[in-house]
Each structure stands twice: as structure tokens, then as C-alpha cells.
Amino acid sequence: MRMVGPVTVCAAIAALAVGCSPIVAGTAKPAKNLKPRPLFGSVLRQVPLDDTALTRMLEQPFLNRQPPVFGGPDKLGDADSAGSSPECLGVTTMLQRNAYESADVRDVMWETWWNDGDPAQVISVIEGVVSLPSAAQAQTLFAQFPQQWQQCKDATTTEQTGPIKTTTVVNSVRVADSVVAATNTATAELPNIEALQATPQARAVGVRLNCIVEVEVVFFGDRHPSDPGSANPDTSAVDIAHAMMKRIDTLS
């Protein structure tokens, strides 16, 4: 027989004397004043939307043709710009080093999803997330972006990747709900070949806790309204950024 100590007996007597509190069924919830914890390391891999979520959101299938990229600040891009507005590369190109040079970047993660080869609205979706040491530092960095991006409206950037030269025009810039967004038009050229058809591209950058999220959605230039998909150059990148920000809230 298990022995019951005097402390336990006294506690039981006291409970009988004052009456027992009822047990309330339900789900345990964190304390209201519990501060969200910053996100670092491999947990960032859970922030981007997967193919199922993107398919549901944009109503067309996507494929992952290469593994996600994860690492430190060295994973930021350093585009070779010969254009008239190199300071606007952060608006037209994902995760550029010069956009983060004033920040203490901890982790960088990005992933690309591709159209499955059938007619559709979208060629590709790139999702990226950058972690900084604190939410305050992330907010300070993000606060620089709206004015920088708005100054780049109607600007042109030129990026050289091997033999391919891509010229991009910033058509519009919008700021709302912790997100700055742009709609661009990109034209690629190869040596001795006529310039390819211009493609609309949607960009969005948002902030949540200690993380900056980036999104790029590239559309087919020759798409038709009857092609599968519901993506919109003015809204889809922002919608994906907001969905990633909600995941950060959940993970924190």
C-alpha cells in the first residue's frame, strides 16, 4: 500500500473543508502577457507556403525543382547591376545584400516554386525570410523601405546574369499593413537574339516580429484570362507575404 505523507493528508483535509474547485475542460492557452519569441535557425523553413497552400491560393499547380536555400548573410544576393538605378535593385530583385547592409542579419532562407508546364497565370513564386536579432531591429530596417521603394517608382534597373541581361521598370509602389509592394515589368535579352516578351512581376516585403519576409511572383507575358489561375500582379505577392507573416505569429 502506498504511504501518504502528513503534508498530503493535511492538504486533502483543507480541500474538504473549503470545497473543491471544478475542473474546466478546454485547451490550454498561453498567458496573455507572454511575449512572442523571436525566430531563428531552421524554424524559418516553416515560414514559406508550400505547394499545397500556393495551389489553393493561386488556383494553379506548382512544383519544387530544387531544395530550399538556408544559411547566413552569405545567402543574400549581390546582383551585378549596370543599370541607371542600382539603388532600386532591392525593389526589382529578391533578397539583395545592399538592402540589408545596415542590419545584423542572422539567418536567410528562400524557396522557389515553379509552374508545372501547363498554361497558367504564374511562372514562378519565390518566398524568402530573413531573421534579425530582435523585433526592434527588424522594424527599424523595414521603416527604411517605404520611402526607398517610393523613390524608385518609374525607375529602371538592369541586371546581368551570365549572358542574360534583364531590364526591369518599377511601375507602381504601394504601402499598407506592414507591407511595401511593387508591380514591375521585366524584359530579358540574350546576345544576338531579339528581346523576350516582357513579363509582369509582383514584389512584396513585410515585417513581423524579428523577421523580414520577401515575395516575388513572376507572371507569363502571354497569359490569357482563360488560362488556369487566379493570381493578380497587384495583390498576389502581398497576399502571400501576409500569409507568411501569419505563420511567423503562429511559430512564435
Rank of each mutant, 00 (worst) to 15 (best):
M1K: 07
V4A: 13
V9E: 12
A12N: 08
A12E: 11
A12F: 12
A17V: 12
V18Q: 10
P22Q: 09
G26T: 07
K29N: 15
P30D: 06
P30F: 09
N33S: 12
L34H: 07
K35A: 14
S42Y: 10
S42R: 14
P48G: 03
P48N: 02
P48D: 04
D51Q: 13
D51Y: 05
A53M: 13
E59I: 07
Q60Y: 04
Q66V: 13
G71K: 04
G71Y: 10
G72V: 10
G72R: 10
D78M: 08
D78Y: 07
D80S: 11
A82W: 08
S84Y: 09
S85I: 06
S85D: 11
P86V: 09
C88P: 04
L89Q: 03
T93L: 06
M94Q: 10
L95G: 03
N98F: 10
Y100D: 04
Y100M: 07
S102V: 10
V105K: 00
D107P: 00
V108S: 00
T112D: 07
W113Q: 13
D116F: 09
D118T: 15
V122P: 00
I126Q: 07
G128I: 00
V129H: 01
V129T: 11
V129L: 02
V130Q: 00
S134G: 06
L141K: 02
L141Y: 03
F145Y: 15
F145E: 01
P146H: 03
W149M: 14
C152F: 04
E159R: 08
T161P: 06
G162Q: 08
V170F: 04
V180A: 02
A186G: 06
T187G: 09
A188P: 01
E189C: 06
N192E: 13
I193E: 13
L196I: 12
Q197N: 15
Q197V: 15
P200M: 01
P200V: 03
A204N: 01
V207M: 05
N210S: 06
C211S: 10
C211M: 10
V213R: 01
V215H: 00
V215Y: 02
V217K: 00
V217Y: 02
D222P: 04
G229W: 08
D234V: 07
D234W: 03
T235Y: 04
S236A: 05
I240W: 02
R247E: 05
I248D: 01
T250L: 11
